[in-house]
Nucleic acid binder design. Structure first.
Lengths: 233, 233
DNA sequence: ATGTGCATTATTGTATACAATGATACTTGC
DNA sequence: GCAAGTATCATTGTATACAATAATGCACAT
């Protein structure tokens, strides 16, 4: 059956974004990323059974890396494993995405607050550069780059928060909604507004105003939610 | 070398609390819980290397379940895996615990807010019973039970929030700080105050006052942090 | 004495083999 | 015909075998 396979022996599309925990250059890591993307992108149907051998064949690897990947995905909540029975897709629903945004609105606020106390000069410069360059690409409608810069802006703040725990959690959520973010930032109007909000957050952080930074970062996500609703998501 | 082993063939101590994602009755699940407890309880030193065969021998299982468990722990952030090199303990520091409490203070607030909208009558009853019974056991100084009831109270609210995502996250954090919670609730004064706060949160939820419920739940955790500081943690 | 190169060992990465469990379908008795 | 029991198959769970990589230590040259 498994003919039109995409072999994972080389280093292919799974390489893109993902500044992830899981390494990309082991079979397991690549299988993990691959299945995750496939679940997040909706390639698998909800509750679809993920059989170890099938996926293994499809990806040209044995059961072992697939098993390990599935076990990890279980922990991420993207896969539901029933012992001795099988692994089932447990994708994220519209409601889940909405929940994630609301949760993020709080945690991004906290990250910005903490960043006020612990951010380094280099990180501030990185953020300034980010906002400046993003402004350029928004004018040019380079949407791929805009999304990437948006990611970097947020990730930098996560790091600047000085909390491994918070950084890890926000990164995970950020990646969960990546598909949505691409759509959201695909509108010039939203991209522009988002960047202005970034600039405001940055100013608050630079002036070490924790209350304001938290409020602005929180509202930045709320504003994103509003935009998504407007786009019917 | 591995003589004083504790075999995982039977169902032993790993059974206790953990309403976890990972199932408890597969070798992998038990190995996972076991290593996790050992890391959280500080049995392993920070950065200690976790060798698959050693752990396997110690627990009387082969490398396979150990590997899978380690991969999952990596995702939970308790283990740091360097490809082709090894798995290293990445326990949670005092600061991590503090961070978790602050993060929880926000998310518990959100959970309480959402619970106002979605809680069922059965869940309300469960909470009422919980507060009532806890009051009894606090009088009797049954600290084991008190901790268990505290867990149940919070878990019930997580469920009542109606958000799988939030529930999952809060459960994980809740478990992370279990050791600390045991210490905290070990003081009658704190146990009593905590239960009063639970009662207040419950009342707010019953009256469907989202703002108040969020505020109280938030302050409940802040109050816990204050107590921990008082205990020098 | 010290540093480089190679052989050896230890350890992880992957694949496969075997065991156990659950699903399916067929047979048999009524 | 139909239900219960059973045999067969599919699939997961665990163990082991083999491959690849990194660590270690020793020999040898300088």
């Amino acid at each position: 059956m498994s003919e039109t396979k995409n072999d994972l022996t080389g280093r292919n599309e799974a390489d893109e974004v993902s500044k992830e925990v899981t390494d990309k250059y082991s079979l397991r890591g690549r299988v993990f990323n691959r299945i995750r993307e496939d679940i997040l992108s909706g390639k698998y149907a909800e509750n679809e059974e993920l059989k170890e051998v099938s996926i293994g064949n499809e990806l040209g690897v044995s059961r072992t890396p697939v098993r390990e990947a599935l076990r990890q995905l279980e922990l991420e909540g993207l896969v539901n494993i029933i012992p001795n029975k099988g692994a089932y897709v447990h994708g994220i629903s519209q409601k889940d995405i909405h929940d994630i945004y609301v949760i993020r609105s709080y945690l991004e606020g906290l990250a910005a607050r903490w960043a006020c106390e612990r951010i380094t000069d280099e990180e501030i410069e990185a953020l300034e550069e980010n906002v400046y360059i993003a402004n350029f690409h928004i004018g040019k409608k380079h949407y791929e780059t805009i999304v990437e810069l948006d990611s970097q802006f947020h990730e930098t703040i996560y790091k600047a928060s000085g909390s491994k725990i918070l950084e890890h959690q926000l990164s995970t959520y950020h990646h969960y909604v990546e598909r949505i973010r691409k759509i959201s930032l695909g509108r010039e109007e939203r991209a522009k507004k988002a960047n202005e909000e970034h600039a405001a957050i940055l100013e608050a952080i630079k002036s070490r105003n924790g209350d304001l930074a938290e409020k602005l970062a929180h509202e930045h996500i709320i504003s994103t939610i509003a935009n998504l609703n407007k786009q019917g998501l």
